[in-house]
């Protein structure tokens, strides 16, 4: 298989406006990946599938990753003049990197039997901007897996044909695979369909004739005596 640099050059030749970044992987696995921009993601994906030399027709694994906000402390030695003498002082600066969510696609080729080529998409932030273009129209194997990412990570996939929760129930509120997810102490308060059903049942059946309180008690006592 071609190296990732060659694949990157190939994509850039075909789609000149695409922005692609090579993400190194420091570990011994030696599986670097391509970070592609969201705007041209579907074009790039389609190109990877159709291009005769690559033919990445099999999208094996799709998954999400949550990267939290990071604060990187940097210590720089600054020379300043204190009381007429030049001194070196440590100056710490905090650099904040906002968090984001990632979707990672592992691509293989069944035609040429090579792979994996790993592409990743990155959301703008972890809040309202957690949107990505869906690649389900290109590889249908992403259909359930993107639903799972939506369910567990909360990334909305634009253009997905059927974006619903898949493992958690529909009324569930949060996204449990996020790193800052807090488990509720008590699941019982969650609104379940049973409550709605109970409301409907109340409307359906006529209420029982109201008994006077005294009658009720005496009636019960009589049954107890017998």
């Amino acid at each position: 298989m071609e190296s990732l640099e060659q694949i990157k050059a190939r994509i850039e030749a075909a789609i000149p406006e695409a922005k692609i970044e090579l993400m190194p992987n420091p570990g011994p696995a030696n599986q670097p990946s391509l970070l592609i921009d969201n705007e041209h993601a579907r074009d790039i994906a389609r190109f990877l599938r159709v291009e005769p030399a690559l033919r990445l027709d099999f999208c094996s694994n799709v998954t999400g990753i949550d990267w939290l906000d990071r604060v990187v402390k940097k210590t720089v030695k600054v020379k300043t003049v204190v009381d007429g003498q030049e001194k070196e002082l440590d100056q710490t600066t905090e650099e904040k990197t906002p968090g984001y969510l990632e979707a990672v696609y592992h691509l293989y080729s069944m035609t040429h039997k090579h792979g994996p080529v790993i592409i990743r998409l990155r959301t703008a932030d972890r809040g309202d901007g957690a949107r990505l273009p869906s690649l389900t129209p290109v590889w249908r194997s992403a259909e359930f897996q993107e639903r799972e990412i939506f369910d567990l990570y909360g990334i909305r996939f634009d253009g997905h044909p059927d974006l619903r929760r898949i493992l958690m129930w529909d009324e569930f509120q949060d996204h449990p695979m996020r790193k800052d997810y807090c488990e509720p102490d008590d699941y019982e308060w969650e609104p379940t369909p049973h409550d709605d059903v109970a409301e409907k049942a109340k409307q359906h059946y006529p209420l029982r004739p109201q008994l006077d309180g005294a009658e009720k008690i005496t009636g019960q006592e009589e049954t107890l005596k017998h």
Binding site: P26, G27, A29, Q31, N61, T63, P116
Partner: peptide, 19 residues
């Protein structure tokens, strides 16, 4: 060491992978 890896095998039911 820090990094990422995807490994897969041919399970009896199909491709079983761990990322």
């Amino acid at each position: 060491p820090a990094g990422e890896a995807y490994g897969r095998i041919e399970g009896p039911k199909g491709e079983l992978g761990f990322y």
